[in-house]
Nucleic acid binder design. Structure first.
Lengths: 197, 197, 197, 197
DNA sequence: CATGAATGAGGCTTCATTCAT
DNA sequence: TATGAATGAAGCCTCATTCAT
């Protein structure tokens, strides 16, 4: 009698989860080109072949992970944007979510890092990702703009402020990844200083 | 010295310059593993063999460029540290040097990016570079600490402030590299807000 | 025999039939090395595991099909040889069986093609098949020789005539396979011209 | 001092020639999928990497060889078509060229075989080749048509006659390849019988 | 009888590096 | 100094086959 559909589904979920976890860390640490598939399979404790059962290429896994990172970022920003709170609180929520998140789930660093750079062979996919990146920047920019209207944020090109916020975020994630627990994440206030007069 | 020797020397200089320029951009854009030597040679318009005449391996070229980036950064910070000006002016000088520099010489972005991550096979060389990176962070940290003593900078862990400054710098460089002229670098003041109460 | 057994037997027959039909076409079109088992299973609409329930390897399925093609060819020639008709009629019967067959059952093309080349890993099996191929050539040769004795066929090495007949047959099958219905099979007479003075 | 351009050119020619010779035989014997690149390199007595210096993939080498086979076939037919001789002599020239050619240069068999079947991943390239194949069939068809007008050839669809001629040719080449010198090629007359009343 | 997840050897391809000239 | 052909180890990927259920 054939194996139950649920069983298969469970196996799939489990394997995919292991692949993603392993891939995320390695890609974040060593980049797309610097990571090799065998290494991912070993870290995920599955066979090389199984990787290809779920992802048709290294690039595809990479893109899936990068898109997931984008999903998280955009979802967070969208949810904050809709909330009926001040712009300052929204940005604080963004930073907090990130800073606190990293303390509890260090793998978030990997998501932040992987969102930084993509250079797969499939140029159109790179463009898709870059557009999503711009999209998420726009969300943050619009929140900052609102804050400027409210008068709680500094004047100046809101895009540039957003870029700097994101840039600092990524830089911190990189430091955290390199130096681990030796490096403590800064207080929310310090980052907010960039925006507050 | 016979004229012939000078000519040879000139040729050397020219070839090395071309290799460095090509390598720097490609390494910055695609990382060490993602860049291939043939591509560098083609961009530099020299033969593969000649590349190996000047650099005995890909890693060596990469390390040379990364060290050069460090040299520049440390030299700038050392020179600023020695000057008899306020800490605020020193940090402004650091940021200014970088922001203005990028406007005039876009390749500075590449230097900033390449200074972010090293992952050559020669672990000891990686460590050397990471130590130099820490060294340059310490220089910036000591300047910030001085500013805190002077009372012109915010309180708080000066290392964390330094990290954020550098992180933001690197993030901006990455944006500049990705989006080119479409992205204008921000005013010095905005970055200084991170430090000024 | 209990009814259940019959049902199982029916299922077997059905599965085997589907595997053979799918395998035959794919092997004929793409060769042994160029066809993959998963593709066969998909075309046959059965699972990979079931394929291996009936055939223990790709080569085994291939050999089974090739042998079946040989069986058909040898059986036809043997039956014609025994009949009490002229050699001309026998050869016409051979060609007719093939030409008419293809019009009605296009899959015969695949049998003809698969009979052309065998290159499995099991050398001894290849030899078995090549010997059967020679055997069928000999049958045709002996019919042609008889025709020459009867004076209805051209003089000349009867083996060469047989080879050409078979060669033309295979070539036509290949054309038919490539171009499908756009290509109409020629009249028996045209092929017979090779033998008739 | 750099190696002379001529020297490089000579090296290239030699390497390409070796690769082609080895590839042609192996592809003809075992098909595209059944031949592996390492085997080709070994037979050609060059390294695996060098193959890729000249051909960017296995498919590309295969297509190059198949196209070359087509070139030869079309060139021969075009040259015959232009000559001021009877259609019968033209077709005889075609067959003769092939039969004699094979006796002297057995590798022609490989060209004939490789022209039979292509199934590379690049579908558009397959179509290009199939169109060239049709083109060469048309050339032969037009010669046969002329012969029918002259009254020297049998009536009937000239395309079918052409197909059969080509089919027989390919079949003979396949036999020759399988059985080598043990199999003597038939006389021109026997093949001509297909066309002559 | 039936399923499809899992394995890993083997094939295709890339690319850092060497070398004869 | 300068060239680019040549090498082969290492990486990506495919696929025949096995196996738990």
């Amino acid at each position: 009698m054939p194996k139950a559909k649920e069983q298969f589904e469970e196996m799939r979920q489990e394997a995919v989860r292991k692949i993603k976890t392993a891939g995320l860390e390695l890609f974040a640490r060593k980049g797309l080109a610097g990571t090799n598939i065998k290494e991912i399979a070993e870290k995920a404790q599955i066979s090389l072949g199984l990787m290809y059962h779920y992802y048709s290429s290294k690039d595809e896994l990479y893109l899936a992970l990068a898109n997931e990172a984008m999903d998280m970022s955009i979802a967070l920003l969208n949810s904050l944007k809709k909330q009926r709170i001040g712009a300052k609180e929204k940005v604080e929520g963004f930073i907090q979510g990130f800073l606190t998140g990293v303390q509890k789930h260090p793998e978030i660093c990997y998501f932040i890092i992987i969102g930084q750079q993509f250079e797969t062979k499939d140029t159109s996919q790179n463009d898709v990702l870059n557009n999503r990146k711009l999209k998420s920047m726009e969300l943050l920019t619009s929140i900052i703009k609102a804050g400027q209207h409210e008068g709680v944020f500094l004047k100046g090109d809101p895009l540039q402020l957003a870029v700097m916020l994101v840039a600092a975020t990524q830089g911190l994630a990189a430091f955290r990844m390199t130096f681990g627990n030796k490096f403590t994440m800064p207080q929310v206030e310090i980052l907010m200083n960039m925006l507050i007069p």
